[in-house]
Design a protein around this nucleic acid. Structure first.
Length: 435
RNA sequence: GUGACCAUAGCUCAAUUGGCAGAGCAUCUGGUUGUGGCCCAGAAGGCUGCGGGUUCGAGUCCCGCUGGUCACCCCA
């Protein structure tokens, strides 16, 4: 007897059966949409050397500075549980020489990510994302396709109230100029800013844009927009993005206040928000990272991708009452009376499974009453009863749980009989007796 | 990392001013031979999150810790 009861580690979650219906459906739709758009699955390790994330995500980011699960491996190398997918996938791209594949390379993945944050609604320390990446093409039509993959998925899952926000963060050529303009704008107004935002002005001026401080809001209204400071190349790219979105008649809004927290973003950034969640209402976020692969030691190659939190999707679907398929239920339960019949039952249930019938065996030598009760709880369509009499005669008693009728079926024909009955094609000349 | 609220059976919740820890649901068994759902009866299930303190006496009051929830920060 253990003296302590073990509990979940903070921010970790058990996904129980009711919720699994959502997970199963979401994953299934993800595969469908990924196939539809021609994305190939890739899986990368949950652990990488810490330096990869420091270099990829960015040294000064919150993720790297205070949220990574990092530790020294037994052989002395520093490793981290992945806090996001992109860096690992880019490492795999470079390491496996995937640039030799037809360009662009379009991949998707899913799995757990780890960030040591304080948990709250829709935010967990271990969470899963659906992630896609397109590597090797800077055409803005790619950006639109990437957004469409997410959009299509959410529509497929039944979401209707979605909001797409887009922005451009420029590139190393135009971003510094904008940051300077932003600082020039706010510096004379610094005394009107709350403490937090004065700090942002000094440390990371771009963060001012997504400030939620009351006092800052009216100032932000008049602050310069990055869209007006883009270099000709970034401006043209952004204009293309908008033109293609318009062509799709996809509703979007340009939100010059989207600033993503990862250093690698360039040009397009976007978020999709859903109703039904609390403060964490972003179910998809991503953008372009044209400098990342070179930064990680690969050939200069543009890329774009997004991550979408599966827990958040599931949470929103539950809140919104979106329909998901019922849990797959077993179809038959085999009940038995006495030891000889039990031997026959053990053989029979496995034979039923061989013919593809989802079957349970009533364990534990309990009374027939108890066995039928568990058949009822399991919501099977048929109970198959094997007693001394049945074994003698080489038959089984088959009881329809819904109708309460039963009849005897020869053991050799049982699989075929059940198979037909479960399809709704009951054999015609069967003599049903009322119970 | 900061703040607010919360913690009693597997779940949802009771327990008078500080006075014997309970109910419903779920689980198991039974209501006469081999027949489910409804009903009835019973069983099992608790160091009241943990540790201190006040008190004749603490689930209840006080302090600390841990955990949970929500929000900030950040992010999916």
């Amino acid at each position: 007897m253990p003296l302590t009861r073990y509990a979940r580690i903070t921010g970790m979650n058990d996904v129980l059966f009711e919720e699994q219906r959502y997970w199963r459906y979401v994953l299934e739709r993800i595969q469908y949409v990924a196939d539809l758009y021609g994305y190939r699955r890739i899986d990368v390790p949950v652990m990488e050397v810490t330096a990869l994330f420091v270099r990829g995500v960015g040294e000064g980011t919150d993720i790297v500075e205070k949220e990574m699960y990092s530790f020294e491996d037994r052989d002395g190398t520093w490793v981290s549980l992945r806090p996001e997918f992109t860096a690992g996938i880019m490492r795999a791209y470079i390491e496996n020489g995937l640039h030799v594949l037809p360009t662009p390379l379009k991949v998707w993945t899913t799995g757990p990510l780890f960030r040591h944050e304080k948990p709250q609604a829709g935010r967990y320390r271990q969470h899963s994302q659906f992630d896609i990446e397109v590597i090797g093409e800077q055409d803005a039509a790619v950006d639109v396709e990437v957004i469409s993959v997410a959009w299509h998925l959410f529509r497929e899952l039944g979401f209707r109230d979605l909001r797409l926000h887009i922005n451009s963060t420029g590139c190393p050529r135009c971003k510094p100029g904008y940051v300077r303009a932003l600082v020039d704008f706010f510096t004379p107004l610094a005394d009107q800013l709350p403490e937090v935002d004065r700090m942002r002005l000094r440390k990371n001026p771009l963060r001012l844009l997504d400030s939620k401080e009351e006092a800052t809001q009216p100032l932000l209204e008049r602050a310069p927009h990055i869209v007006e400071h883009l270099c000709p190349e970034c401006a043209a790219h952004f204009a293309d993005l908008c033109r293609y979105l318009d062509a799709l008649e996809r509703p979007y809004q340009i939100n010059y206040r989207i600033v993503r927290g990862l250093d690698y973003y360039t040009k397009t950034v976007f978020e999709i928000k859903a109703a039904g969640l609390g403060a964490q209402d972003t179910i998809c976020g991503g953008g372009r990272y044209d400098g990342l692969i070179a930064e990680l030691g690969g050939p200069p190659t543009p890329g774009i991708g997004f991550g979408s939190g599966i827990e958040r999707i599931v949470l929103a679907m539950q809140q919104l009452g979106l329909p998901v398929p019922e849990e797959v239920r077993p179809q038959v339960m085999v009940c038995y009376l006495g030891a000889p019949a039990k031997l026959a039952a053990v053989r029979l249930v496995e034979r039923l499974r061989d013919s593809g019938i989802r079957s349970l065996l009533a364990f534990g030598d309990r009374s027939l009453k108890a066995q039928l009760k568990s058949a009822d709880r399991a919501a099977v369509e048929y109970a198959v009863i094997l007693g001394e009499e049945e074994v003698q005669a080489g038959v089984a008693t088959v009881r329809s749980m819904a109708r309460g009728t039963q009849e005897q079926v020869a053991l050799e024909q049982l699989s075929a009989w059940l198979d037909a009955a479960l399809r709704g094609a009951l054999p015609a000349a069967s003599s049903a007796l009322r119970a």
